[in-house]
Structures are given as structure tokens and as C-alpha cells.
Design a protein around this nucleic acid. Structure first.
Lengths: 132, 132
DNA sequence: GTTGACCATCACATCGATGTGATGGTTCGA
DNA sequence: TCGAACCATCACATCGATGTGATGGTCAAC
């Protein structure tokens, strides 16, 4: 597909699809006329990239971890240098920290919302303190 | 404490402590001479802010959710306007999406790392496919 | 009272992600 | 053949989070 369709199907501005390519995150091929040609699988990949960007990872890191994700899992052990491994372990741990921070705060928000709602309708409170 | 100590204890540049204040995330009091005076509890708060920032939340959102987090949980239901509630629900859901995306990708990295390590030391592979 | 380590404000620079517009080529249907 | 709808590249602007430096006040120790 061409850039317009990919843009529509992923909700991503064309500008950014070109930017992700420039950053080395995707490698669309080219038609004879110079138009970019995107493979079907890039729809998911773009979504994945955007999710990671939204979660705070920079393109530099995304570029490093993408090659290791959802691959045939059989080939490509060749390019796993020790530095790469260390980088990945680092990033895995950083992601775990991010996850924990997000979970903590999201749960706090959820608790607050539950409390506010429980305050307004004290009958349907889902906790265990209403019927003693 | 003053800004220098807070900066050291949180690993945050003074510049950013002032920036967070400018963005309405923290409200240090002032000494007679104009120096900012930070309460002990702000150490954790700064860490929390940095974690959320690192996880991709903008200060604008952090400013909205902070008042609802780890508070006495008793007072302050007054300022919960319906729009505020809606914003919080939105943000809670967005955080959940972020979390799921991060977990998916972190697990993929972890799996990859396990596979690579299992490839190098096929004896201690933790999965269930080595001893048939 | 001077020095050095703090602090203040303010302005400007940078960096990554994104928006926007200028300019021009390709394709295709009216 | 013309115009609309794509596409290309390129340059510049914006925005939020940060870095950096200029300029000057406060205070404790010497």
C-alpha cells in the first residue's frame, strides 16, 4: 500500500511515517515511480511504534528493540552482540520501572474515582466496608 | 530543605525543580530571604513526577492527577467536577493502554533475551522444550 | 569585609516529536 | 489535455522538556 492508505489505517500523519523511516524504524520499499510501498505487516508495526513512543520511549531505543520483537524467533541470533544484550536488559528493566510507576498511579486514580463514585452512590460501593 | 538538597536527593536538576513549580506541580513555600523551602514529602512527590514524565505523561496531565493521589482520602471531594471525573477516567484508560503496550513489548524483549541466553547455555533453559 | 557556596530571576539554546507549507512529479479519469 | 488526488523532497515552525549561562542577592566562615 502507499503512504496515504497506511496513514489512514494507522491514524498517523504521513509526515510521521516518513519520519519513522528517517529514524530507521521502518524500511518501505519503493515503486518504480519513487512512491513508498508499505507492506501489510507495517500497519501493526506502526501501531506498535506509536504505542512505544506514547509510552515515553525515544525512537533511538525503539529502533534497537524492534528487531528483537515478534520475529520468527529462529534466525537472527547472529547479530546479538554483548553490548546489544546489555542494552536490551537495561531497557527491559527501565520498562519494568515505567510499568510499575504507571500501574501505581493508574490504580491510585482508579481508587480515587471509585471513592468519588462511592461517595455519590454509597449503595453500590464495590469495596468490603459497606455491609458490616 | 532548600533546592540544592532536594536536587541532590532526587537526582533532579534545580532547573527542573523550578520548572515543575512553574507548571503548577509543586508549591514550595519561601523563606524570608526568598529561597524556596521544600517539605520533606516533596522528595517522593518529585520522584513520582519524574516517573510519570518518563512514562510519557505531560506536565499538564500530571498536574491534574496529582491532587487525587495518596491524599488523606477523606476531604477534597468538593472539587471533583464532572469534567474532572471524565478527564481522569480518560487518563486512567490511556494509562492502561500504555501499560499493556509496555508489558507486551517488555515481555517480548525478555523472551528474546531468554531465548538468546538459552541459545548460549542450552542446559539451563527455563522453558519446557529441552527435555523431551 | 571579603570570599565562596548557596540562592534568585531571566533569557536563550537544544533536542525530539510533530505541524505546515512550498514546490514539483505521477497517475488517472472527465 | 486538463484537473484532482496522489506522491516526492525540503525547509521552517512549534511545543514540551531540558541545558546553560548571565547577573545579582544572601549568608556563613574566615
Amino acid at each position: 500500500m502507499r503512504i496515504g492508505e497506511l496513514s489512514e489505517r494507522t491514524g498517523t500523519p504521513r509526515r510521521l511515517l516518513r519520519y519513522y523511516e528517517e529514524q530507521g524504524l521502518i524500511f518501505p520499499s519503493r515503486c518504480a515511480n519513487g512512491y513508498r510501498a508499505y507492506d501489510e505487516s507495517l500497519v501493526d508495526r506502526i501501531l506498535q511504534i506509536r504505542g512505544l513512543l506514547d509510552a515515553g520511549l525515544p525512537t533511538r531505543i525503539i529502533k534497537q528493540i524492534l528487531p528483537c520483537l515478534n520475529k520468527p524467533r529462529v534466525i537472527h541470533f547472529s547479530d546479538a552482540t554483548p553490548e546489544m544484550i546489555a542494552t536490551l536488559e537495561d531497557e527491559r528493566d527501565r520498562m519494568t520501572e515505567r510499568i510499575e510507576c504507571l500501574v501505581r498511579n493508574r490504580d491510585a486514580i482508579a481508587d480515587y474515582l471509585d471513592a468519588v463514585r462511592g461517595d455519590k452512590r454509597p449503595d453500590a460501593a464495590p469495596e468490603a466496608s459497606t455491609t458490616p
